[in-house]
Amino acid sequence: MLSDPLVIAGRAFRSRLIVGTGKYPTHAVMAAAHRASGADMVTVAVRRVNLTDRSKESLLDFIDQEQIFILPNTAGCYTADEAIRTARLGREVGLSNWVKLEVIGDERTLFPDNVALLEATRVLVREGFVVLPYTSDDPVICRQLEEAGAAAVMPLGAPIGSGLGIQNPNNIRIIREAAGVPVIVDAGVGTASDATVAMELGVDGVLMNTAIALAQDPVAMATAMKLGVEAGRLAFHAGRIPRRSHASASSPAEGLITAGTAAVRGA
């Protein structure tokens, strides 16, 4: 949908679906799923080089950088300092000054530590980063992140990797209404209809990893997600009908063959 690009910090993306690079059965399956998804932005993690096994294939060999923009994350960081340090290292690998900023506050739920997230956002924005923070589905923190200079806000739909779908659609809608930057639902999608629901709420994009990577057929699921995101976007723009509690017939009430038969018989 070239006519409807996702624009973040002045950069236009053809696709409103952003996908991850983790948990795939093989790098080749990942590359095929990326192609099927149509995504032109993928997330990566920053980790120590494996020094004991140098034979391992490099992830970057399986990402078509002509087509796909790479967004490093700070996943696994539990303090603002760790996240800032990881973001700086990610930038130094030299592909861009963008970061998907995560500061995790709880191991079991992987919910964000929004206080530390806000602090890290301020520091990294000052250093010239394009910051895309992964945050709670809370309109107040989203507003504060935007005020701190975030280029987009990325509220979770549900816990990372849970596949539960959009748990608080009303909050997501309120976040979208209030935000002056793109809103990307990040995490929690389980299947294509979840992505559609998110897009129907009016958000600008959806970011997911596990739902595609751990599907039984990741390539087929990537196609489904692409279509789900497109369907949701189209439906949002098309303007859905208001909900009502009772029926409203789709066929005309007039001209029924049973109407007026008594009169005919009488004539």
């Binding site: 983790g22 993690a45 920053v46 980790r47 080089v49 992830l59 490093p72 997911m208």
Partner: peptide
């Protein structure tokens, strides 16, 4: 010394 690279992630 820390040497890091990009690996799969979400």
């Amino acid at each position: 010394v820390e040497i890091v690279n990009f690996v799969g992630g979400g």
